[in-house]
C-alpha cells in the first residue's frame, strides 16, 4: 500500500490506456511517455501493461507500507528514499524501499513527466480494462491527492534491464499530411519553429508560432481523430492531440505526428519543428 504524502500538481495512475472504446466517445488515455512507463515496469519485473504513476514537473512524495522494489524513469529528477539520495546509474533509478520508507521525486531537472513503477503494479480498480486516469472524461481513478492510498499488487516477474531514452535536445516531430491538409496552407509548417504553449496538458500540446492560414473557413462535420492528430482551430495555431484527446472533433486535422512521446517531455517554451514524412 502506498500513501500519498505530497501529490504534486498532477500525478495520475497510468497504464497503456483503454483503446478500443473510441466509438462510444471514450478517449484512449494512458501514459503520455509510454516507453518510459514500460521501461520502469520492466526494471521491476512487471508486465508492460502494469499501472504506475505519472508525475508532472514537480514530482510527488509517497510512503510505502511494505518493502518494495521501485523504478523511476522519464523526466530526470532527484530522488530521495528516507531523505537519502538515490544514485542514478544509466539514467534510471531502481531501488529498494524499506517498510514505512518515504520516496520523494523532486522537481524535473530535464523533461516533464517521471514514471514510477513498483513491483506488483498499482492495482486500483480497472475501468474498461485500464487503470489510467483520463483527465478529459473523468474515467479511471481520481488524480492523486494528499492522503490518498493506493493498493500495490503482488510482484511476479523477474526484473529486466533496458536502455532509457535520452530526454531533451532538439525536438523534431515527424508528420504525415492529412486527412484534411487541403483545409490549410501548410507551406509555413515545415521548417518553421514552434514553441510549446503553457496551456498544454494531457489532452494536447498547444503550439505557439506562425499561425497557419486556413484555406477553408468554418468547421467540418464531426469526425474521428487519432493520437498525434494536428488540429487547426479557427485561430490557426496547431494543437497536437495526446492520450486524453477527444474521440471526435470538428476542426480540420492537417497531419498526424508519428510519435508523440517527445511531447510528453517537452516543457512549455521548448522549440519544436515538423519534418514531413512519406
Amino acid at each position: 500500500m502506498i500513501t500519498v504524502l505530497r501529490a504534486g500538481p498532477l500525478t495520475t495512475v497510468q497504464d497503456l490506456g483503454r483503446p478500443g472504446w473510441a466509438h462510444l466517445g471514450v478517449p484512449r488515455s494512458g501514459a503520455l511517455d509510454a516507453p518510459a512507463l514500460g521501461l520502469a515496469n520492466r526494471f521491476v519485473g512487471n508486465p508492460d501493461d502494469a499501472a504506475g504513476l505519472e508525475t508532472t514537473l514537480l514530482g510527488c512524495t509517497l510512503r510505502f507500507a511494505a518493502p518494495a522494489l521501485v523504478a523511476v524513469t522519464g523526466a530526470l529528477a532527484a530522488i530521495d528514499v528516507d531523505q537519502r539520495p538515490v544514485e542514478r546509474p544509466g539514467g534510471c533509478q531502481l531501488f529498494e524501499v524499506p517498510a514505512g520508507g518515504v520516496v520523494d521525486i523532486g522537481p524535473a531537472i530535464r523533461g516533464v513527466r517521471s514514471y514510477l513503477a513498483v513491483a506488483g503494479g498499482i492495482v486500483v480498480e480497472p475501468v474498461l480494462g485500464s487503470r489510467s486516469t483520463d483527465t478529459l472524461s473523468g474515467l479511471g481513478p481520481d488524480r492523486l491527492t494528499d492522503g490518498a492510498v493506493l493498493p500495490v499488487g503482488t510482484a511476479t516477474g523477474a526484473p529486466a534491464v533496458g536502455e532509457p531514452a535520452r530526454i531533451g535536445g532538439e525536438f523534431v516531430l515527424g508528420l504525415r499530411r492529412g486527412p484534411r491538409d487541403d483545409w490549410c496552407d501548410l507551406t509555413g509548417l515545415f521548417g518553421t519553429p514552434y514553441t510549446i504553449g503553457p496551456l498544454s496538458n494531457r489532452i494536447g500540446t498547444r503550439l505557439a508560432g506562425t499561425a497557419l492560414t486556413r484555406a477553408k473557413a468554418g468547421e467540418l462535420p464531426s469526425e474521428g481523430v487519432v493520437l498525434g492528430a494536428v488540429q487547426v482551430p479557427a485561430d490557426g495555431r496547431p494543437i497536437v492531440f495526446l492520450a486524453d484527446h477527444p474521440t471526435t472533433g470538428g476542426y480540420p486535422v492537417i497531419g498526424v505526428v508519428d510519435d508523440v512521446t517527445p511531447l510528453a517531455q517537452a516543457r512549455p517554451g521548448t522549440t519544436v519543428r515538423f519534418r514531413e514524412l512519406d
Binding site: 483503446p19 478500443g20 473510441a22 466509438h23 462535420p221 464531426s222 469526425e223 474521428g224 481523430v225 487519432v226 474521440t247 471526435t248
Partner: peptide
C-alpha cells in the same frame, strides 16, 4: 483494427 469510429460523414479506422 483497433478502433472503428463513425463520424457525421466519415468512418475512421485506427490501427
Amino acid at each position: 483494427v483497433t478502433e472503428i469510429v463513425p463520424g457525421a460523414l466519415t468512418v475512421l479506422l485506427d490501427g
